[in-house]
Design a protein around this nucleic acid. Structure first.
Lengths: 136, 136
DNA sequence: GGCCGGTTCACCCGTTCGGGTGATAGCTTT
DNA sequence: AAAGCTATCACCCGAACGGGTGAACCGGCC
């Protein structure tokens, strides 16, 4: 985050310097004003496009849990963890092993999950959880 | 598509008119040149950002099947259809009903799918199919 | 004709899953 | 202290699922 701020600061400083250079340098005398304006417009359009691309590209790759849905559904942290393992394709027994629980406990959490998600099968739970952005 | 072109044409025309207006109108006399340049820079940066956002946002929404993976795995069309229903959270019986097949046939297709996808559970099949972009 | 791949269906068997009920323990809220 | 929530685990039972095998039909290809 800090690195991003520093980079942007440098970019802005360079841009400001370039503007001053254009303003008082040779270009403004060598070319008519429309060319100058065109250069500025092009550069800023490119910067804007890059910015927009980066902002959405990050949203594409990164995933952030819909915490609002989690609380509104009343999902407990443990249930969310079980849900993640479930979506990873693990069986109840495997989930129990990786979470160091009894298979019975996993079953209980899953039953509660199914009720809160209003589904009856694990495959449906995966679909619903993806819809609600509970899992990537 | 045609509508998009028309809209862009109108936008560009308005932008050109605005540039001419700024050039010969009151603004250029009322404010110093840097303000004029700043306005142009801001407008074009915004347009660029919007453009970049739209370009990547479209890629986010649309889904196209990875046909190359389908052929390399040797998935038959019917198997792909069963896979879609599977990912939709339907049970074997439901898939059989909606596809007008016998549950036994669905089981056969699923067995072949699991073998081709190298998985052993339907939840794993969903994950693998999503990885390979066989399903949205 | 014979072979192959896709599709369809059947049966058996063991495992997994889902639903229901009940119980204990810890921690927070009232 | 009582109530409520979370987490934990247990048992039973029926349904769903997965693996294996076998078989039939059809269309295309050699």
């Amino acid at each position: 985050m800090i690195r991003t701020v520093v980079i942007w600061g440098v970019v802005l400083a360079v841009a400001a310097f370039a503007l001053e250079f254009l303003k008082y340098g040779y270009v403004v005398r060598a070319f008519p004003a429309p060319v100058y304006v065109g250069i500025v417009a092009t550069v800023f359009a490119a910067c804007g496009a890059w910015l927009g691309w980066r902002l959405t590209a990050r949203r594409q790759g990164g995933f952030e849990r819909n915490d609002q849905a989690v609380t509104s559904l009343g999902l407990t942290p443990q249930e969310v963890r079980v849900l993640e393992r479930l979506a990873a394709g693990q069986s109840n027994k495997e989930i129990a092993r990786t979470m160091e629980l009894s298979p019975n406990t996993v079953k209980t959490h899953l039953s509660n999950l199914f009720e809160k998600l209003e589904v009856s099968r694990r495959t449906q739970a995966i679909g619903k959880a993806r819809e609600l952005r509970l899992i990537p």
